[in-house]
């Protein structure tokens, strides 16, 4: 049984400008100790997928319209707020994109790091403090005894992300959701933070969901990849399989867009157009208008279904996107 098994998750935001279908029929699963990537452009629904399972989207306007999310056999979507709160920060933790704004500037770092222990394990300050110091030491922060008394603005961006990692892992969670943990960091720091997440993951045996738009990061750390576009999964496969044999036109376009793989001096390849407005999305393949290969073949009358074309390799069944074009 997978640690987390999401089936057919649907999330919508009911706004003044119409219903935004942020997540439509997403299914994914995470095995114990596995690292699963969710890749996609901004607004493709990768964060909302994870936030909605944990009750972290504002409701209203957000609404979970269907699906299940079984975590260790229990459906997160059916839990009460108190039950979910008992899981958040204890069995499922999160780290976020921007370490500059994700820590509370008005609280000492130590108080923030030990907060999960105090809430979930009922430890008093004196009991939690040595653990917080140890946790900071484990993520490579020097002089943790002094650093616990400091405020976030006294830390650099990379150090703050280390604090976030220490804070999220202090309760030894079974699942860590990392929402673009390296996007806001310098390239040199990115590698260190990724290595640190992997190292902590190995030490604690946690599973990781890595939300990112950086395919290089995915290829480096993930076991399994889900590609999202316009609120739907377009393709999911084990990482090696996906990079060897991308079947969907969107996945292929994403890979063509990796700057390092393109000839030097040439114009960088970008996917034409913009992601569609999720409030105005009609039926049919959402990638149709941007598909430079052979979008004229894409489905227009009905949404493409997900089919399994190889063991563990699923893709949206749209003729225009599956057919390898010559563009």
């Amino acid at each position: 049984m997978p640690l987390l098994d999401v089936q057919n998750l649907r999330v919508a935001f009911h706004t003044r400008n119409g219903v935004v279908r942020a997540v439509t029929g997403v299914s994914l699963s995470v095995e114990k100790g596995q690292t699963v990537g969710i890749v996609g452009e901004s607004g493709s629904g990768k964060s909302v997928t994870c936030y909605s399972m944990l009750g972290l989207i504002p409701m209203p306007p957000g609404r979970i319209e269907g699906g299940t999310a079984n975590f260790d056999g229990v459906d997160l979507l059916k839990m009460s707020r108190a039950e979910l709160r008992a899981i958040r920060g204890r069995r499922i933790s999160m780290i976020f994109q921007d370490p500059m704004t994700s820590l509370n500037p008005y609280m000492r770092v130590g108080d923030q790091v030990m907060e999960p222990l105090r809430i979930h394990e009922g430890l008093c300050k004196a009991e939690a403090l040595p653990k917080a110091i140890a946790a900071l030491a484990e993520v490579g922060i020097k002089n943790p005894e002094e650093r616990v008394r400091q405020y976030p603005h006294e830390f650099s961006g990379g150090m703050r992300q280390r604090v976030m990692i220490a804070m999220s892992m202090i309760t030894r969670p079974e699942l860590l959701i990392a929402d673009e943990p390296t996007t806001a960091l310098d390239v040199t720091i990115q590698k260190q933070v990724l290595d640190l997440i992997k190292e902590r993951q190995r030490a604690l045996g946690s599973a990781v969901i890595l939300i990112t738009h950086d395919l290089a990061v995915v290829s480096e750390v993930c076991d399994y990849v889900n590609v999202m576009y316009a609120g739907r999964l377009v393709e999911s496969a084990p990482v090696g399989e996906l990079f060897r044999n991308p079947r969907h036109a969107y996945t292929r376009s994403l890979m063509r867009s990796i700057p390092a793989l393109q000839p030097k001096g040439g114009t960088l390849y970008t996917i034409p157009g913009m992601p569609p407005d999720l409030a105005k999305l009609g039926p049919g393949c959402a990638f149709r208008v941007r598909n430079a290969e052979n979008g004229y073949l894409c489905l227009t009358d009905r949404d493409p279904e997900i089919i399994e074309i190889a063991p563990g390799h699923r893709v949206q069944n749209c003729p225009g996107c599956l057919e390898r074009g010559n563009a």
């Binding site: 972290l56 958040r88 999960p116």
Partner: peptide, 24 residues
């Protein structure tokens, strides 16, 4: 963002207001 972090840590709503938000 740090209020979202607090929610993700499982801090109860009342404590989010009193401990995390009131000071600022």
């Amino acid at each position: 963002d740090f209020i979202r972090t607090a929610r993700a840590k499982g801090v109860p709503e009342l404590k989010i207001v009193t401990h995390h938000a009131l000071r600022g």
